[in-house]
Design a protein around this nucleic acid. Structure first.
Lengths: 362, 362
DNA sequence: AAGAATTGGGAAAAGCTTTTCTCATATTGG
DNA sequence: CCAATATGAGAAAAGCTTTTCCCAATTCTT
């Protein structure tokens, strides 16, 4: 009806189904031809640019629609020198922490028409390098580098080539790099001051391995907030171990084998440790939150909600971090120079384990 | 030293740092010019094609290296009509289940030089449609559609346009579509026959909501394997509820309030239910695995390992599923027609909760 | 040493869009 | 009725590679 090229008329006797209907996608030329105009005119009509009569415009649009035409981003990108893509490169495998970040990031960038390449280097520098090559070849407009745990890493090479890079939930030493991290220390302070406000006097800290910077920062927050609350921070009340429930149980056994001066609150380095601690406390007959109040870290729902009682926990707001990384990257892509290490605030999600008003939690 | 274009000599008096070193990436023309050959010759040299003298080849290669030249994938893709990209579209948000799939998929495709666009539609059909538009615009070579839970979904549109699509961990009704799913029934049989072999006589089943096909299939597997083992499958021994620990606890309370004919084994629909069941059993004084053996589903490490005793669990091998999806997609991209619903085998990961030789598990 | 056969490299088209410039037609003003 | 101005649309270049075809120069054959 509208000058369709004859290539989708199936041969007379062939079975009507199962013949791949479109050998390739339609091109602007197909549209122009079918509409009886030049390629340039068709382009202008579709992009609402140039000076064209309303009729011509409408005709082209109609034909384009009937042909299911869709501009070829590859050609557009080539022309504009802007690929409208961004790479996200995870040093180690994607995990529980990178998910919310990536999700929010993708959402933010998608709103600006940018698609993301997902690359997983799994702790293999050679692999990371190949991924980088691939992304540079694809002319990504920017890069987000992330990691499972917020620890210092080696800088990504292309910084030197002027490609915008944001380090999200990971950081490097270069002061010219933009690094986004949760405010671990602030998160810890949130937990401690909450407990102190509830009248707890002796707040111990069971946490993960000290080689994590996050562990050191949270410990610092614990100390600082304690002293601000007029409470003492004793070294023997800070136990560093693994990130597991088992460690939470062991640490509680350690802390509570003393006969006097027992903690009346526990701030745990993550929710798994907290859950282990809760189990161990119940095993030795302490009730929660009456005898011991507990606050965890990560606000990992499956853990926090399943614990009995449900865990009050510090949330790193990783979604906000991801969105912020996306916004910052967009800024950098449009020419702004952003740099420095930014710490984004955590928040406290109150459930029943700390003895505050437990909002009849789910 | 090798005919570099002068554009990276910074102006005499300008600060030497902070002047973006490369305004844009190098092009083949830059290389050709610097090497004193034509563009075509440079291309041949870099691609090891055509007939060229060894010197010319070496010269071009050297210049390319010194300029840090990297071919523009956009132009290559445009030329070859092959973008070397694939989209992965998640119906609902990416979660615990999609991760291993995506990870394995990405790895498999990366080995073939294909990068993946990650798109998250978050249960929003309009959003899904826009993502699809974007991917088609980018001329992806194929599409993987996935979901958080293996449930039937509406077909993706572009199937009609001849674009290869694989449904991974999700499926549609069309017999012409290729759908990859875990063999839930087989997984359940694995669990039950294992328990039966260990001498358990009354194996109950606590599972998730029946509107999940996986739930119905696992229940079917439970029934079938019981009868094959010569055991009875009573309806009252199969409890369907939520996917949570809380439900596991409730269901145990329900099952064990009877005074006689109590189950000596529990097959749970996922590891969270299993963990809840373990806790509840311990609360009523049953020991595991002596009194009651437990098998979970998902083999979710953080759950299975943290449970006391650690959970024996059915593993859906989602990594293998992702890799298989990648391989199948590659096949389809290279022209093969693949179709049908394929169920990939599960496996059983034995830990201490079922009373089998507990390999001194971690 | 002349003709034939290699050989090495260049020119140009194709792949798809966007955009600038130009030109022809139609319209308006005097 | 002629000149001047809008107006609508086309031609072509640019963006970057790959690939085919072709030509000039060298080498070999006899």
């Amino acid at each position: 009806m509208n000058g369709l090229p004859p290539d989708d008329l199936s041969p007379e006797g062939a079975p009507p189904r199962d013949v791949a209907p479109a050998p390739g996608a339609r091109t602007l030329r197909d549209v122009a031809q079918a509409a009886g105009v030049s390629i340039g005119t068709a382009s202008k009509a579709l992009n609402a640019s140039g000076r064209l009569s309303a009729e011509t415009r409408a005709k082209v649009l109609e034909v384009a629609k009937s042909l299911d035409y869709r501009p070829n981003d590859l050609a557009q990108s080539l022309h504009r020198a802007r690929s409208m893509t961004v790479g996200i490169l995870s040093t180690d495998s994607f995990g529980r922490f990178t998910f919310p970040i990536v999700e929010a990031l993708e959402r933010r960038l998608f709103d600006d028409g940018i698609a993301i390449f997902m690359c997983n280097a799994t702790d293999d520098p050679a692999r990371e390098r190949r991924h980088l090559e691939q992304l540079l070849g694809k002319r990504v407009d920017g890069l987000v580098v992330t990691a499972r745990r917020a620890d210092k890493r080696a800088p990504i090479e292309p910084v030197a080539r002027g490609l915008p890079v944001v380090y999200a939930f990971s950081y490097i030493d270069d002061p010219d790099a933009l690094c986004l991290l949760p405010d671990d220390e602030g998160g810890a302070r949130l937990a401690i001051s909450h407990l102190a406000r509830l009248g707890r006097k002796r707040i111990a800290h069971i946490t993960g391995p000290r080689h994590f910077e996050a562990v050191r920062l949270r410990e610092a927050g614990w100390r600082a907030a304690l002293s601000e609350a007029g409470l003492a921070a004793r070294d023997s009340d800070c136990l560093s171990g693994r990130w597991s429930e088992a460690w939470g149980r062991e640490a509680v056994a350690e802390l509570f084998k003393r006969s006097r001066d027992l903690p009346d609150a526990l701030f745990c380095g993550n929710d798994q440790i907290a859950r282990g601690a809760v189990d161990a406390l119940k095993d030795i007959g302490r009730s929660i939150p009456e005898d011991v109040a507990i606050v965890g870290f990560d606000n990992w729902n499956v853990m926090a909600d399943a614990t009995r009682p449900p865990l009050t926990s510090v949330d790193m707001n990783l979604g906000a971090l991801g969105a912020e990384a996306g916004a910052a990257l967009l800024d950098m892509i449009s020419g702004r120079r952003l740099a420095g290490l930014r710490r984004l605030p955590c928040s406290l999600v109150v459930r029943a384990s700390c003895g505050a008003h437990a909002h009849a939690g789910a």
